[in-house]
């Protein structure tokens, strides 16, 4: 869809509308019934006309959880779009490349060592896992699309087992380990939500700035170099920032798969592969998807949100896989 066409504007308007709808739902739904007016009063009035309990529920429970799920969704979807473009691989995303598991591994290691510098450890784990997956993929299949994902899944499996081990050694209950491995926004704090949103914004802004370079880079085969793009520098910076954004999400909310796959691919179906609109719509779309998935997970009795995203995203992954194979890539 060409820039500035009514169709494209309608698509973005639709996304914003969905975003508003998701936010409203997540702020209003819950065990404590509150009217929209009451919620608005609690959020925006300096001295709200509500009970301390109601204020606590909205300001310290629902709002942080909403912001966390929106930020994480935006972060994961933009990471997916960036990884797919940088690596020229439509199957790439934080989960399939093992980045999310690496971050969770680093975070759980730091926590079991006494809880110092958890985000830094998550970031280091994310970078190490990505590096490992890319090296493995180069050694095993000269970096082909499938070998990259295969390597990522292997790295991911081993590191997820490591997470389980650390958590079990720390005497945590199985249910809380499952929440780590499948992700959860239950109990999100404002600080965590802020960190996730900051990571998402940093990655999004940088990737958007280099949007046209990313178009050329996504062609692969050094085309970008021949078009005067500083491919090496841009790829490195974006891989690091995508790892950082993913790490901030996984360190607080665990491993949430497939948002980075579903978001960008749904957008590409409508807007095409050009990166500027793709990144913008993935940012909004990812936020909507994960806030919605979290709402669903909550209403089904506080399931891990990754269960919802995997159930929805797995089939999409299969569809992309078949399509990519079909064209002989």
């Amino acid at each position: 869809m060409a820039p500035g066409t009514p169709g494209r504007r309608l698509f973005f308007a639709g996304l914003l509308l969905l975003l508003g709808g998701a936010a409203l739902w997540r702020l209003l739904a819950g065990d404590m019934p509150l009217s929209p007016a009451a919620v608005a009063d609690i959020l925006f009035s300096p001295s709200p006309d509500a009970s301390p309990q109601e204020i606590l529920v909205v300001r310290s429970v629902r709002l942080p959880r909403l912001l966390a799920s929106l930020g994480a969704g935006a972060s994961l979807a933009v990471s997916g779009a960036v990884l797919q473009g940088v690596l020229g691989n439509p199957l790439a995303e934080p989960y399939t490349l093992g980045i999310a598991a690496g971050a969770a591994f680093g975070a759980s290691l730091a926590i079991s060592l006494g809880g110092i510098w958890v985000s830094g450890a998550a970031f280091a784990g994310a970078l190490a896992a990505l590096g490992l997956a890319l090296v493995l993929s180069r050694l095993s299949g000269r970096g082909s699309q499938l070998s990259m994902v295969l390597s990522g899944i292997v790295v991911s499996s081993v590191l997820s087992a490591g997470v389980t081990l650390f958590k079990a050694l720390a005497d945590e209950r199985v249910s809380s380990i499952v929440l780590w491995l499948m992700g959860s926004f239950s109990g999100a704090s404002m600080e965590e939500a802020g960190a996730v949103c900051a990571g998402a914004a940093l990655l999004f802004g940088t990737a958007l700035w280099w949007g046209r370079d990313l178009d050329a880079i996504s062609l692969g085969e050094s085309r970008a170099v021949f078009l005067g793009v500083e491919e090496g520098k841009i790829k490195t910076v974006l891989l690091v920032l995508a790892s950082l954004a993913t790490a901030l999400t996984a360190a607080s909310f665990g491993i949430i798969g497939f948002v980075g796959l579903v978001g960008p691919h749904l957008v590409r179906l409508v807007l095409g592969p050009s990166h500027r609109p793709l990144l913008a719509a993935s940012f909004l779309g990812g936020a909507v998807l994960l806030a919605g998935a979290d709402g669903l997970a909550r209403s089904l009795g506080e399931l891990p949100v990754g269960v919802i995203t995997a159930l929805a995203g797995g089939p999409v992954f299969c569809w992309i896989l078949v399509r990519e194979r079909g064209k002989g890539a």
Binding site: G85, G88, P90, D215, S218, G220, E221, R268, G272, P273
Partner: peptide, 9 residues
Amino acid sequence: SPSLNFPFT
């Protein structure tokens, strides 16, 4: 080898 990663026009 022209790239076929993404359906650019």
